[in-house]
Design a protein around this nucleic acid. Structure first.
Lengths: 241, 241
DNA sequence: GCATATTTGTCCGTATGTATA
DNA sequence: CTATACATACGGACAAATATG
């Protein structure tokens, strides 16, 4: 035992659709990224080159290029001569992510303030998407909408580099989310906050939006850290699934 | 003509030193990164897989892995079926970089303020390194020290993810620096600013440090944008070197 | 601690498709 | 339009490191 390798998750993989101009490595990276983000491949498991190359029907060379891309996104961890593993977030990483996310979001609000307003269409859309998904009790989609909300908030800065950093941060956070059992109602408490912050931004009440965001971030970080530390207590005897 | 390929720069390459635990791809990436940062490979030139693989005595598979890493760092631009090119910065990219850098630095100062102080040893070291390099008129080292200064400033946040983003931003900025002819005295005007900001941080005068940084950033961005736009006027007839 | 099996690291050869002269 | 050069992608091979019994 002790060697947890991703085998089961590659059931429905009949090869990736090769359509337009994306290279094979990028297509592989996209497939693996979504599997990881959706929690179908859990943190800590090793990704076997041979097995995945076979199930995706690609060469090991292309697969290794994809691994490089995902490792750079911090979704995979490359250990020399041992293989690649789905990253596991520790408390320090969670703190760093929340700190950086808050920084970028507050800065984006400042940019909007300086510009005398902002286009809040996408922000509003993400909020609504979260609400409707919550009604339908599709919690994974709620999580996706939540990520889109933060993405849109930081997007007010109008800086593509900020956007890229944010999308990495949010993808990374998913790693921690899926470790928690009751993902069902993890995001629910924050839906009203999203609504509130969106309204404040729309109304140009920047300081209040910033304050709301700060308390929001602090609360979310604490909750996630608590959930993580409580998991450490459990011995978790490497239960199969 | 019109096809500028890197050939000449790989003169002194007798293969890369394979020492410790770094993979070949990472070693290749390190070599290419430093060549690009130091301006030995100019923006826009294509990096031939065959030529570089031969001169570095590595396989094209490993080289392609290294290309993926550098493309993700935005130092290379991957154009499908055309190859990889050293990235060229346009005005929009420069503006984004300066905006994000300023955001991270101001946030770091805020963190230091909240912590009631900060360890400014590395910051002071980078400032001194810049001064001594300026005295010796080694301008490339002055640029390196300047990058280290900003790295140390953002490092006050104590966030490794911020550090990583910053190092990417500073590496990217080098691409623009090397396009300018008189790199000799580009950084010199900012040495007093570095000293001043360092002192303000050391003395805990956070607001003044932030203000100084803002004006610093604005000035540097304008100067670089001016230099870039003036270059666009010149036809630059693809002079050999 | 040792022998073996597995897996990664790296290279080579080659066929195919794409862009450019 | 053809020809050439190149990137793309694959599969096989072997060495080196690691994991297993």
């Amino acid at each position: 035992m002790s060697d947890v390798v991703a085998e089961r998750w590659l059931d429905g993989m009949t090869g990736l659709q090769r359509e337009d101009g994306e290279s094979v490595a990028e297509q592989i990276a996209s497939v693996l990224r979504s599997r990881i983000i959706q929690g179908q491949i859990q943190p800590g498991v090793r990704l076997s080159e041979e097995a995945i190359a076979a199930s995706l029907d690609v060469s090991r060379n292309s697969l290794r290029e994809a691994f490089r891309l995902l490792a750079h996104d911090r979704l995979l961890k490359h250990e020399k001569n041992r293989g690649v593993f789905v990253r596991e977030l520790d408390a320090a990483a969670v703190r760093e992510i929340y700190q950086l996310r808050l920084t970028l979001e507050l800065s984006a609000i400042d940019t909007a303030r300086a510009a005398g307003g902002a286009d809040t269409a996408v922000l509003r859309d993400s909020v609504n998407a979260g609400l409707t998904s919550a009604v339908k009790e599709e919690w994974v989609d709620v999580g996706t909408a939540n990520a889109a909300f933060h993405q849109a908030l930081a997007g007010l800065a109008g800086n593509s580099r900020v956007d890229e950093v944010m999308s990495q941060l949010m993808a990374e956070l998913r790693l921690a989310f899926h470790v928690m059992q009751p993902i069902k109602d993890f995001f629910s408490p924050y839906l009203p906050d999203n609504v509130r912050i969106c309204e404040l931004v729309e109304q140009g009440r920047w300081d209040e939006a910033g304050d709301a965001l700060r308390s929001y971030s602090e609360r979310a970080e604490s909750q996630l850290l608590d959930a993580l530390s409580s998991l450490d207590d459990v011995p978790l005897t490497a239960s199969g699934t």
